[in-house]
Design a protein around this nucleic acid. Sequence first.
DNA 1: TGATTCATGTCAGCATTCTGACATACATTG
DNA 2: CAATGTATGTCAGAATGCTGACATGAATCA
Lengths: 150, 150
Amino acid sequence: MNQDGVDLETSLGYLLKEASSVLRSAMEEVLRPLGMSVTHYSCLELLAQRPGLSNSELARGAFVTRQSMNVLLQTLEREGYVTRPAAAPVGKALPARLTPSGRRSLEKATVAVRSVEVRMLAGMTEAERSGAFRILQSMIRSLRAGDDGA
Amino acid sequence: MNQDGVDLETSLGYLLKEASSVLRSAMEEVLRPLGMSVTHYSCLELLAQRPGLSNSELARGAFVTRQSMNVLLQTLEREGYVTRPAAAPVGKALPARLTPSGRRSLEKATVAVRSVEVRMLAGMTEAERSGAFRILQSMIRSLRAGDDGA
DNA sequence: TGATTCATGTCAGCATTCTGACATACATTG
DNA sequence: CAATGTATGTCAGAATGCTGACATGAATCA
C-alpha cells in the first residue's frame, strides 16, 4: 500500500477525476440516509431551479443519457415527487414539475448537500474559489471545443 | 430564483461534476477506437507506473470497488495484457504486471489520452495550472477530512 | 406542398459497477 | 498462544447507466 512518488499524481486530469470521485462519495454518504442517490437529488434540484424542464433537458443537466433520466423520472412520478402532463403542450417534450412532496424531500437533501459543499470549500479564500470556478470553466470550454458536437 | 438551495449556476461542486463528465466523455471518445474504456486505460497506466500493484490497490487508484477491478483484471488477464501469479507471494495480494502486449496496448492509449489532457490545458498559463492543482488538492483534502476514514 | 433534418420520449437488451457475503492471510494484542 | 482486527480475493445478485432502435412532433428547405 505504498504511495511512493509517481507522477500520475501530477496529472490534472487524474486529480480532477479524484476530486469528482471524492465529492460524489461524500454526497452519496449524506444522501443515503434520505434514500436518495446523487442523480436523484440532481434531478430534483434542477427542477426546483428550472421548473418545466423536459426529460432530455434534465438528462443533460445531470450528465446522464435521456434514457437513464427517463427511468428515474418514472420512479419519481410513481412515488409522487414529480408530475408530468399526460400530453405534450407543444412538440413531444413533457415539462416536469416538483410536487409539494418533492419540494419537501428536496429541502432535506439540500441541507445535507450544502454541508458537503461547505466542507469542500473550507480553507479556501474567496479569490481561490472564483479562481477555481474560472479554471474549471476554461477546462470545460477547451474540452468541448474539440468535440465537434459528438 | 434561488432561495436557500445550492445554486447550480455558481456551485463549484456542480462545475466539478461537469468538468469531470466532459473529461470522461473526451477520453472515452479517443479510447473507443482502441477498444479501451477509461477504467481499462486507468488500470494499465497504474500498472505501468507502479508494477506489482494488487487488485485492491488498483481499484483504489482507479476509483472503483475491488470487485469491479477484479472483473476487469480477469478480462485483461484472459486477453494477455496482464499477468498475476497463481499463488500470493505474501498474504493474499496478487501482484499484477503488464505483459509486453499490455505495454504496447498502453502506448497507443497514452498518446490518445495525452492529447485530451493537452487540449484541456490549452489556454491556461502555468500559474493557472499549478493553481488548479493546489485548489483541487485542497478540495480533496477537505472532503476526506470529514469522511471518518472511509 | 412534400421531403429532410432534428429533437424528443420510450422500449429493449447489454455492460458496468455496486452492495452483500464469505473464506483466507497476516498483524496486533491480551 | 489464542482472540481480535484489518486487508484481501472472489462469488452472487441487484442496481444503475449505456447503446441501439423506433415512432412522433416540429422546423427547415427545395
